[in-house]
Design a protein around this nucleic acid. Structure first.
Length: 498
DNA sequence: TTTGCCGGGAC
DNA sequence: GTCCCGGCAAA
């Protein structure tokens, strides 16, 4: 590989390449980038100043960033490192990532490896440090992974551990398994992975600058997963970087580098904090409204719910007005498909996904997609919809298995049951006026939902008698003047629609 | 028998 | 369009 020589400052190395000419670029970077810069700087110093052994330089870095020194395997064969990532070969002077990679081919394999690892660690720690702070238990997340991996790095810091989790999607096990590599050097796989993961991530990081940082931060602020919106894909990853890579590599092709942000439109963020989705199947008809620039998903089953997530880049197409908190909209919301299965990762394609913690992790491409429904239903139910057509409903209530004679085909059964509970509960204790207001609001919300979701408009089965509260029942015949007009006209009740 | 509401008619 | 009611089906 024609890797640039460290001394070759003519192009990409630029001002950062060596201390003598190292004029600190106008540093508009975010805090995290500083560390990287330091890393680069150290590498360049190592090259320019022989006194500082490469190893010392790295040791320094390690000591600075980690609690303890990490042994640098020196026994690596050179060929392992003869394949620097392609992007790093570019001589684009504006991309600071070049200096980082430039010395790689020049340095000993061990030190280079350390560089890679360090870079990855830095990136990882940057992206997840807040997570570590906010949710410490996540570190100890007893993932049933085969290898107890990430945490044993000996680097003590939660950063590293977290990093393992964050990058788990992108073959993180391999990524951090360099440690294992010492035990049994298996160059090919680990090299390939390291080749693609850390470097690419680093490259993206540098290339996309603050944008990615922002994404990473927001990601870490709430423990989220990212779902691929590509038709019939639905892959769920736990890191935005991984998802971007997934989209770019698998869907967009590597050629899409020219539009680095394009991947943003093909994945959506999902919250993991959402309550678990009890139902294995979510019948929620996804909102077919344009969610993404993607071509319409031919699959009848799994239109993706819009991701109103404030963080994830919105698709060009306008989101439905109902998004903001239409159930799934609240991605931090219960609706989130994968609530507890939350971290559930679709099995589509690469097996690099983190092993699902739930038993329901059936390998189905559409499954993760349809899962996004629950939260919406949850919210709606909470709002005591009287609507019959709320296939949205995967009810979370523990409906008693009371016999329900009325057995419509699908979820409606559950729903009707739930309806009954809600209605009876409310109607007895709430004043009519208040009830009416509540119901009205519910109706309005439903109207909005219906508008947003055409598929809902087709539901027109009649609710079983006695289950629905109608004006007649609520107000009685003696107060017919309080009935809604429709009821008075013997039409379908509008105040308490099914 | 009661209830919900469709279909249709009168205005 | 509003208003009303016959009549059906389900409970």
């Amino acid at each position: 590989m024609a890797t640039k020589r460290p001394g070759d400052t003519s192009s990409s190395s630029g001002p950062q390449s060596c201390p003598s000419t190292a004029v600190r670029p106008t540093d508009t970077r975010q805090p995290g980038a500083e560390t990287q810069e330091t890393l680069v700087y150290m590498q360049c110093c190592g090259q320019e100043a022989p006194n500082l052994t490469e190893r010392n330089g790295h040791r320094k870095i390690m000591d600075r960033n980690h609690q303890g020194p990490v042994f640098v395997p020196q026994g690596r064969t050179e060929r392992v490192w003869t394949h620097p990532p392609a992007p790093q070969q570019t001589t684009t002077p504006t991309i600071p990532s070049c200096p980082v990679s430039a010395p790689y081919s020049f340095w000993s394999p061990g030190s280079v490896e350390m560089d890679e690892i360090m870079a990855a660690m830095v990136l990882t720690s940057l992206s997840c440090s807040s997570v570590v702070q906010s949710s410490p238990q996540s570190q100890n997340d007893p993932l049933p992974g085969p290898s107890s991996g990430g945490g044993d790095m000996g680097c003590g810091g939660g950063d590293i551990e977290c990093g393992g989790g964050e990058l788990s999607d992108s073959s993180s096990s391999g990524y951090w398994s360099w440690d294992h590599g010492n035990v049994s050097p298996a160059p090919s796989p680990s090299v390939a992975e390291m080749d693609s993961s850390p470097d690419e991530g680093l490259h993206m990081e540098l290339e996309q600058g603050g944008e990615l940082h922002t994404a990473a931060r927001s990601k870490s602020s709430f423990r989220g997963t990212y779902r691929c919106l590509w038709p019939s894909c639905g892959k769920v990853l736990t890191s935005s970087v991984g998802m971007k890579r997934h989209v770019r590599v698998l869907h967009l092709g590597s050629g899409s580098e020219q539009s680095p942000r394009e991947e943003d439109f093909y994945y959506t963020k999902i919250s993991c904090e959402a309550p678990a989705d009890p139902s294995p199947v979510s019948p929620l008809p996804p909102d077919p409204s344009p969610v993404s620039p993607l071509p319409p998903d031919p699959s009848p089953v799994s239109p993706l719910p819009p991701d109103p997530s404030p963080v994830s880049p919105l698709p060009p197409a306008p989101l439905p007005a109902s998004s903001p908190h239409v159930p799934w909209a609240s991605f931090g919301s219960p609706l989130s498909p994968d609530p507890d299965s939350g971290l559930q990762i679709s099995s589509s394609g690469s097996g690099s996904s983190r092993p699902s913690s739930g038993p329901e992790s059936a390998p189905g491409q559409h499954r993760p997609l349809s899962q996004s429904a629950p939260s919406s239903s949850w919210q709606i139910q909470t709002d005591h919809l009287y609507q019959a057509c709320t296939p949205l409903q995967v009810t979370m209530t523990s409906c008693s298995p009371a016999p329900c004679c009325w057995t419509p085909p699908t979820v409606s059964n559950q729903h009707s049951h739930h309806n009954t509970q809600v209605v009876t509960g409310r109607c007895r204790s709430v004043s009519v006026g208040e009830q009416w207001l509540q119901q009205n609001s519910a109706t309005n919300r439903l109207t909005t939902l219906r508008a947003a979701s055409p598929s809902l408009t087709h539901c027109s089965f009649r609710k079983g008698r006695g289950e629905a509260k109608k004006c007649r029942k609520v107000y009685g015949v003696e107060r017919k003047d309080q009935w809604c007009t429709a009821c008075r006209w013997k039409k379908a009740c509008q105040r308490f629609p099914d």
